[in-house]
Design a protein around this nucleic acid. Structure first.
Length: 580
DNA sequence: GCTTTGTGCCAC
DNA sequence: AAACGTGGCACAAAGC
């Protein structure tokens, strides 16, 4: 079942399964493709087991080869290393080793794996450029030995079933991340340029402000009676000028400026807004991150402590709503955009076994369900109340409704309160599937020590209290955000498998995506509780149905028969901006 | 000159 | 309303 891949120093690949063998690097893609193609016989497909998904899989994808299942030793090691359910294992108790030090392989460091080369790759130009060498695995990392340690740690843990699911989900997530990097997010540079030009004026020469910003800078100076030398990009200078003009702002934050009444506020807010567009997603961004009609970022699986993904490159997880108009499906294709409604409170309800809260989400909108139960008068209060419960809010409306939520949903609220108390005590909390939080670290220790020192004053005690509560908010949120991330991993894994099973639509027009996705629906974007699938138009309805089925499957995988729903909003659109 | 820190805003 | 979780990123200012 597990087929472990390793690489000799000379690049030769060793394949460890029933019949261990060595293959030249150039032969790997065809070997993997042959194993994946053998689905017609009864044997299950191999679980490709490697030190790092990017290192192996990106090359395979560039050779047009997809795999069904994998096991990412680096990612699973990280989880098991600190997982409380596996705390007694040899893996968890060993001194730090090379698997702990391993960083993810950057996509740029991975060359295409041999075989199935596209014709244009054989050009003289290509021959003149030597292929990049394969990135070397870390010294002292024997993948077979590590796999055994991981299997032992899981089998001997207090929750083998859950940890096994987490390992499979994390590994599948790594496949999805590599595939989304490979396929890219469809991006229309011309549309993006039109958005920028409409808002800012035409692209200015390097080092110059766009016309609209220049005009707003002029208005800002006029409103402040400031000299032409005033640069609105300089916070200290601008604040000084505003003070001089008696504006009364303590900072340049948007929400603070919005409270003021002064002629400078309107042009300044618009300036900040457009300046942000220019610097974060302007022409430079377009030049750097979009090529051949695709935006390619690097997803970092488990890049957030809670298990959420992060990304590096282009700020992919912060794409402003305003530029999503540039995300447009290829001709003859569409985007199926799906997001989960109120994922985190639903996950909380299921973890806590809180049937009342799960029931509030039965008809769709969970916050509306809370209102319908008579707990709070408005949807807005239900929402801020639940968010406050999960984030640790202590002020305002959120704190006001918390007691009523606690009375109606004692199990759910107790779960997050317990997680907070554990964190405040310096303890570790664990998600539903077994990812544990880091310890509080030296800042927490030092704060407590400070409060007990002989010369401790009121401020030291206050600081200790603040650090303590802050860590409690972290662990409170960790269990919910982390379990939501686990649900999302299972959702993604299921979507990925189902999309491939749909196959190519007969007669569909090929898109611009590279093999193996040129004629198949594929995941193109993922944002915590939201996915974008790029699909041939003919398959839009089928894709939507599979994405919904995948959400049901994810709920069952995590929470079995517990009656909790994960309803989706699904939209089939030409542009991402048209979803919801 | 360089790197680090602070500010502020975007996403969920 | 602006305190209440997780991040990435760009820029200017501060520090070396």
């Amino acid at each position: 079942m597990h087929v472990v891949l390793s690489r000799d120093p000379d690049g030769t690949v060793r394949v460890h399964d029933g019949a261990p063998r060595a293959v030249p690097a150039a032969g790997l893609a065809s070997l993997v493709a042959a194993s994946e193609g053998g689905a017609r016989d009864e044997r299950p497909l191999p679980r490709w087991t490697w030190d790092d998904t990017n290192r192996w899989y990106l090359g395979l994808l560039r050779a047009g080869v997809r795999v069904e299942r994998s096991h990412d030793l680096r990612l699973v090691h990280r989880i098991l290393r600190s997982s409380v359910p596996a705390a007694g294992s040899a893996l968890a108790t060993a001194p730090p080793g090379p698997w702990d030090a391993m960083a993810p392989t950057p996509a740029g460091a991975v060359p295409a794996t041999g075989a199935r080369r596209a014709p244009q790759d054989d050009s003289l130009f290509d021959l003149a450029a030597p292929a990049a060498p394969e990135p070397a695995p870390a010294a002292g990392t024997d993948p077979r030995a590590e796999l055994r340690r991981q299997e032992d740690a899981v089998a001997g843990s207090s929750a083998p079933g859950r940890l096994r699911l987490l390992a499979a989900g994390e590994s599948a997530g790594a496949l999805v991340a590599a595939e989304m990097h490979h396929a890219g997010l469809p991006w229309r540079s011309d549309v993006h340029d039109a958005i920028l030009t409409e808002a800012l004026g035409p692209r200015p020469p390097e080092g110059h402000r766009p016309a609209r910003l220049e005009e707003l800078a002029r208005q800002i100076r006029a409103a402040l009676d400031a000299p032409p030398s005033l640069n609105p990009d300089s916070h200290p200078d601008l604040l000084k000028a505003m003070q001089y003009a008696g504006v009364g702002a303590r900072s340049l934050r948007k929400w603070e400026l919005e409270k003021l009444e002064h002629p400078v506020v309107a042009p300044l807010l618009e300036y900040k807004n457009l300046y942000r567009l220019l610097t974060a997603n302007g022409w430079h961004w377009l030049d750097e991150w979009v090529a051949d009609g695709r935006f390619r970022t690097e997803y970092v699986v488990g890049g957030v402590v809670t298990g959420r993904w992060s990304s590096t490159g282009g700020g992919a997880l912060q794409l402003p709503k305003g530029v999503r108009r540039a995300v447009v499906a290829d001709p003859g294709w569409c985007l199926v955009v799906a997001d989960v409604a109120q994922l985190e409170p639903r996950v909380l309800a299921a973890m806590a076994g809180d049937e009342a809260m799960a029931g509030a989400g039965r008809e769709g909108d969970l916050y509306a369900g809370i209102v319908a139960s008579g707990v709070v008068p408005t949807r807005e209060l239900a929402k801020v109340g639940m968010l406050g419960a999960m984030y640790g809010g202590t002020t305002g409306a959120s704190a006001q409704v918390l007691p009523r939520l606690g009375r109606e949903y004692p199990r759910a609220i107790a779960l997050v309160e317990d997680a907070a108390r554990t964190g405040e005590r310096g303890g570790v909390v664990t998600t539903w599937l077994g990812r544990s939080s880091p310890g509080p670290g030296s800042a927490w220790d030092e704060a407590q020590a400070g409060a007990f020192a002989d010369d401790a004053g009121a401020d030291a005690a206050a600081r200790a209290r603040s650090v303590t509560r802050s860590w409690g908010r972290f662990t409170r949120n960790f269990v919910v955000q982390g379990t939501a991330a686990e649900w999302a991993l299972c959702w993604l894994a299921s979507i990925r498998r189902r999309l491939w099973a749909l196959g190519a639509a007969p007669g569909a027009r090929p898109g611009l995506a590279p093999a193996p996705f040129a004629d198949r629906p594929h995941l193109a974007f993922f944002l915590h509780d939201e996915v974008v699938v790029h699909a041939p138009l003919e398959l839009a309805d089928a894709v939507a149905a599979e994405v919904r089925a995948a959400a049901e499957e994810a709920g069952r995988l995590l929470f079995g028969d517990f009656p909790v729903d994960f309803p989706l909003t699904v939209a089939t659109v030409d542009s991402y901006a048209d979803a919801k």
